[in-house]
Design a protein around this nucleic acid. Structure first.
Lengths: 129, 129, 129, 129
DNA sequence: GTGGTCTAGACCACC
DNA sequence: GTGGTCTAGACCACA
């Protein structure tokens, strides 16, 4: 699985890393029980500071995507465990301003739904293997 | 139209303000040609600095939601003008990590679609009057 | 000669008014010895404050485009008088940032020259009568 | 590259700074990928507040002249990216009143063209190194 | 150390 | 009274 950091993006690097790992899980590139590279290696490979990797990993853990295993390092969590961390209120708060913007810009409910469905399929279809 | 700032929130105040105004437009609470309170009054009402309001207004203007009218102050833009600022690439980039998270947490495409549609209706249905 | 004020423009109203009168002279719509409407009438016709018209007129006078005639009001100056107010240093300072921007954005000297010539002809060709 | 702020000038400081940086790019003093001093250093060197520098930098970014690189700070953008921000309508609106003034003051099309060409060469010829 | 955010207080141009 | 500009000083997120 390839991770690409855009240093010129507005979104902080740790967030980019976190997002791409989450997307990797959604796509099935990263499966439960699989392990993530150590903060050191990951930092080296991406050319970023290991503190930044650390922060991304901390967020992932805190949001239930990973667990720390003493010997194996950072592991992708089981799907059940992830499910337990579902927080619809938070998701709603994140989606609301985006949908509001789409409505303002003249998209109808149908168009938005279509847009979303296509995007979801693009994510799920991005599965390797 | 009521605006609520959460001072403990992680999201910057100017962003909260911007988001709620955009939502207000989406809901129809704020209609094209209507005017926003002056930076000073808005700041006073919300208990925040006028510069912070200024920044929110600047973002709204730059994103095409408002225009500065020399005599009438800050006005909600026409729907056509807003439409010209539609940037689907950007919206896709904002939605992707959220949908990825939803997929990880076990929601099916159908559930996500349903979730989104309900949310959109909630926004549009929040119209006063 | 028709003057159009854009209340939503960034440029101040008095500057818009001044610019359009200067352009009117350049186009030949306004000829030496002709008189401008009184500040009152001009303000009324354009729907702007008479102080704003006053400011535009003051600038025009100060830059040599007009003279105040006791009985006839504000008159367009003679071409010779205008010529005396030619200030190439100032013009250069106004043009420099614009040309710099054009160069940055990849326009060649030839393209810029062509662009300018076309614009000048457009101004001179806009003559009525 | 030397930047000179005129504190008595009518044009805002942040605009002066922005203009001179754009001119620096046009002259080739500042090349793509090169970095600008931090807002703090630049402010200190020019004897102005860092927020003022910030505003200049924000404008430059918004107009496509620079990008914020997470590790390297503020960088001059690539020429291609700048080109994408070319807005001829706007440039025309900025040039029109200046050319109108030149015409009024008796300059012929040929003289104006010559004036512009000399100025452009002066800008491009101002290259150091 | 960097840019981003927030506050505060002041002056000015414009209307 | 409006927004725009400038200064000053503080805190924080990010790297």
């Amino acid at each position: 699985m390839i991770i690409q950091i855009q240093f010129e993006s507005e979104t902080p690097i740790y967030k980019q890393l976190r997002d791409q790992i989450v997307q990797g899980i959604a796509q099935g590139d990263l499966k439960p029980e699989e392990s993530l590279p150590s903060v050191r290696r990951m930092g080296q490979e991406l050319g970023i500071n290991l503190h930044t990797v650390n922060k991304a990993y901390a967020v992932l853990k805190q949001q239930g995507f990973t667990v720390i295993h003493k010997r194996k390092g950072v592991l992708i969590n089981s799907l059940e465990k992830m499910r337990e961390h579902l927080d619809t209120d938070n998701l709603e708060n994140e989606l609301r301003p985006i949908f509001s913007e789409m409505i303002c810009k003249g998209l109808t409910q149908k168009e938005i739904s279509g847009f979303c469905e296509k995007l979801i399929q693009k994510i799920q279809g991005g599965q390797n293997e």
